[in-house]
Design a protein around this nucleic acid. Sequence first.
DNA 1: CCCCCCCTTTGACCCAGATCAAAGTTCACT
DNA 2: AGTGAACTTTGATCTGGGTCAAAGGGGGGG
Lengths: 259, 259
Amino acid sequence: MARRSATAAAVCEELSLSYVESPTRCGTCAIRHKAICAALCADEISALNRLSRRRSVPAGQTILGEGEAHTIFANIVSGVVKLTKTLDDGRQHIIGLLFASDFLGRAFRRDNPYFAEAATDVELCIFPAAGFEKLLPDHPGLEHRLFQFTLSELDACQEWMLLLARKRAEERVASFLLMIAKRVPNMDCLHTENPGGVRFQLPLSRAEISDCLGLTIETVSRQMTRLKTKGVIELVNYREIVIPDIRALQQAAYEASPA
Amino acid sequence: MARRSATAAAVCEELSLSYVESPTRCGTCAIRHKAICAALCADEISALNRLSRRRSVPAGQTILGEGEAHTIFANIVSGVVKLTKTLDDGRQHIIGLLFASDFLGRAFRRDNPYFAEAATDVELCIFPAAGFEKLLPDHPGLEHRLFQFTLSELDACQEWMLLLARKRAEERVASFLLMIAKRVPNMDCLHTENPGGVRFQLPLSRAEISDCLGLTIETVSRQMTRLKTKGVIELVNYREIVIPDIRALQQAAYEASPA
DNA sequence: CCCCCCCTTTGACCCAGATCAAAGTTCACT
DNA sequence: AGTGAACTTTGATCTGGGTCAAAGGGGGGG
């Protein structure tokens, strides 16, 4: 097991996948992400512990309504949260996915420009926004970390814009699967004999995937079939996927090979 | 003139356009944006003044190469900067535009994931990154402002994702023109008799607009013609545009009226 | 003042992906 | 286990916008 993980870690390193042996959780405080905690002093940690409160949200439930004054700021402990925007006539798009260790909500903002919903069962560690914000000014280290996270979010968002603007359907689907493979935290399910292979559950339905990629359900389905035919992916069932060789998927994500 | 501007301001308010009488420049320090300066103390302002340095960049010149370790952090004094990303095979997309008072560069980051180029003649107020970053930890107010700006950038980026994923060509072009109308700072050119009307120069060529919208040059051109035919816009020449009624444009930006 | 180059528009045709329709799976619930 | 509803796949057809090609402007330089 340890040996297998070591191999997996090496493969992930080589392929610039962000391999996570087990999700990083700080032993001392309520926050999921060790990096945050590293920036905090003991006082801050105990203050956060006093503030925080756990909440479980079943799949499909709304966490935060679009345009609602938002009152929570939370760290995601497990599960996947989807952030969506909708045009008046119903056309909708998923503008972001949040995974374990990500933050939901915006410090110092009273409105939220999107709709947040649990895509899978989600466990949250909630900080009431008001109390949290009172804490922040005295602890610039914490705000600095959040700032850096927001910059990463912006990077991801801009990368995704390139996908939406210029990639073909097959590349989009491959890119999506790659992104999920990178972020689904439990990578213990890497193939034993095949160190480059991964097996995982899709956190989204086909309809949600199409809302992520700016495509229709049918196109997503067809492209999945296409990738399956090419041998790039295997479908265990609708939700469970095996990627025999991540490199092939990476190639599919960046090459528009017509015919 | 004052009266006309007052009307214009009222109209912009009504239409939720960000009307700017004249670009906000702080009288005391080198930074373009008064809001930033409001967060600074006298020490900070003089420190920034010592750090900053002016630079003019002619249209078309590269300011920052993609992937280059970046060494500058700058406030844009005038002109428009475009940020682009490119796929290996040459497909390219403009992921963002920066206008007067915006910031270019990322504090505490050593790499930049995009390519920055002057779209028009640009005047920059440059802070060498190293010196600037040394200043930041002692002045959390400044970092707080930058954080808030980054959140706004993220908002804009997510809004744009919805455009790329779900809007039709005509809506995209209308949305683009609306965005430019909102951000081109010199709005003194509002129509005298027609308070809802605006006249301005496009900072981008058709090719650049198509790279913004995930379309081709031809489609952008066709949709511009279409909007002209409908009377939503008037083309003075290739670069100069008159919008007789902003409301009509706003409607075109959100309604996919097929035929 | 004219010419040339580059940007833009217009036209003709095509195709990737949307739309419409129907059949096949999966899984929760009785 | 049986049943139904929701999700997914597959097929047939259509179309918005891409591609290829050629004909206008506009503006800077001679």
